[in-house]
Design a protein around this nucleic acid. Sequence first.
RNA 1: GGACGGGUACCGAAGUGGCCAAACGGGAUGGACUGUAAAUCCAUUGUCUUUCGACUUCGGAGGUUCGAAUCCUCCCCCGUCCA
Length: 432
Amino acid sequence: MSEQGNIFEEFEWRGLLFDATAELKDVLATERVTAYIGFDPTASSLHVGSLLPIMGLARLQRFGHTPLALVGGGTGLIGDPSGKTAERQLLNREQVDLNLAGIRSQLAQFLDFECEGNPAQIVNNLDWLGELHLIDFLRDVGKYFTVNYMLSKESVKRRIQSDDGISYTEFTYMMLQAYDFLALHRLMGCTLQMGGSDQWGNILAGTDLIRKADSSKAHGLVFPLVTNSAGTKFGKTESGTVWLDPERTSPYRFYQFWMNTDDRDVIDYLKYFTWLNRTEIEVFEKSVAEEPGARAAHKELAQLVTTMVHGAEAYEKALTASQVLFGGSIESLSVSDLRDIFEDVPSTSLSRDLFAGDGIGVLNLCTETGITASNGEARRLIRQGGLFVNGEKIEDENGTVSLSHLIDNELILLRKGKRNYHLVQVGMEVTL
RNA sequence: GGACGGGUACCGAAGUGGCCAAACGGGAUGGACUGUAAAUCCAUUGUCUUUCGACUUCGGAGGUUCGAAUCCUCCCCCGUCCA
């Protein structure tokens, strides 16, 4: 299980080390530590942005340390002000519970809970925060925090300067998170907290608290914020956040997300999100420089990450679908192939009635499937030459699509622009 | 509770009686180029409509006016300062 070398250096060359407390390097070189990362249950699924910290835990485990994944059942009810410019909407308890369950199962894919020596664990901070009494908390924990200290933290400062201010609830978040670290330190001997760079302030609050309350040393390490060179937010696409849950983001889209990585980012991402070692990555680096058109690094990245998250079978399907859509012709495929390949491609089911007689207007069809938001938008799309039905460019905005257009009497493939495919399933039942 | 400032389209932001479906910027979408990349260039960006045009929109509700994002009244929300 455990690899040679120092995890600290491993993080370093991968570009994962944004900041760390002073003695951490030595500690990691000489001791086996227990480390944790917190995950917020703000949604029922993690997204690709969480992949970096998750991989961080997994890497740590491979180097023989013990990873803890903390799900914020308690802190999730409060809301973290870090990196936020506005107050958050409070989640209700049921929602948090639901989200927690989803996240828990996703985390489980990446960590080894069975291994000898350093098995991973998932913990929920509601277990200790839920019990906490206000008076006790203020006496035992609050005493160690000066308001001056809290106000000096970047996350708080920024919000105080902003128009919206910060609520007392979110202001308290830092203390709760620090307390988490203290609790894990006491319960499980945890001495390291990792996280995104936006968590630096919270993490230091934790190490400070442990030092003051228990006169004991604890450490912190933060990963860089994943950026992309285009300056947009990592993990977002036209169709929204890229989730790890296949129900929310199909493996096909997931695969496409990685395929569309900016050339300038692809090597960084290989370092961040895959297990490839230095020499393997250097090969791809060369490939990007010398024959970028081959996109070898993109393919590798998309393959490895998709396989890791969704499994080999899902990857194969995504790959086939991509090859067909971006390469070969659709006509050459049998319908059962099509159906199989496009299982993941966004699709809509429409009633057969709509296509009866003269059929449905292309404009309506676009709006009906959600490929465009309005008929006007569909009209524009056609005028600009961006709409394809079954691979054929639509020139006439008044055209219709009827039963005779169906592939094997049940499918229609819509394409918007170069990359957006949408499958329409037409119901089989014949109604009056 | 008081004083002041503010609420305009996806976001930022102009507009302070007609020339306003509303400048400009960003974002987004489509096209060209290429490699499912970036950069660049072009186009589009309220709804319905082939066109003409019609309809809805500038925090909410009323009002003034031939005509209101713009003026008046009340209300709601946000911020800053004062209590």
